[in-house]
Amino acid sequence: MASELVIEAQGLGKSYGRTVALDGLDLSMSRGEVLSLLGPNGAGKTTTVEILEGYRRRDSGHALVLGEDPERAGASWRAKRGVVLQSCEDVVELTVWECVRHFARFYPSPADPSEVIERVGLSAKAGSRIRSLSGGQRRRLDVALGIIGQPELVFLDEPTTGFDPEARRQFWDVVRELAKVGTSVLLTTHYLDEAEALADRVAVINHGRVVATGPPAELGNRLNAPARVSWSGPDGRLSKETHEPTALVRELEGAFGGEVPGLTVTRPTLEDVYLGLIGHEADAKEEQ
């Protein structure tokens, strides 16, 4: 069961007029996984997610989500996957509780509305009109509506855009709770720290294709990249890039006769790797 795929997409293609949004995108996702899509604006993240959610038609390629083609799947399939949309301003005259209960009634086996409201941290606002909620509170309501049907797979499209740092941390806990009970989560985000904090695996999209995929710590062969060892010498800060940082540190220890002042050993950050990936791709395109 561990290797069961909830998303299998091969060669997804999509153009808007003369603009190519997706250019043969391949993506797969295992059950229970938290997968984050990273990529610059216009890379094709939202198009990919909307094709997999069933909102958009692809021009070419194959897609199976929870075993069905999202273009043809019906209501029973929609009940198994939850969608948290980027922004919604409707039903502002309902209270939070009324709204969540309303959406619960469309699903064959929904969660308890009060319990879902609790999970997204809106219990104190359950009786308030949606009109009176802050932006962050509305996003949490969006999440509640996305998970009320107890989905096996949840799509989160840039869920924390516009959040303050505290709200983001709270939101991360909500996603971790989902993952803990075995829900598969597909998350698109602009924030690398968010992907690093939440995702089991990230997929970097650029120019409509996946250019790299892997666990955040290993992306772009990050762990085998040369490490930068820095220390404070008698004439100021010194540093050296090496494939064997342990040996260098031992050597330094000998040279200093003990503790090395100001020692740091760093590998490229996720951001370094990410910027390298999308920059490299851009260069390759220009050369063609």
């Binding site: 929609r78 969608v83 049907g149």
Partner: peptide
């Protein structure tokens, strides 16, 4: 209005007939 503010899109994403 509901088409523009995403209300329709959200409903279409649920199993609502």
């Amino acid at each position: 209005g509901e088409r523009e503010n995403g209300g329709l899109k959200r409903l279409a994403g649920t199993p609502m007939p």
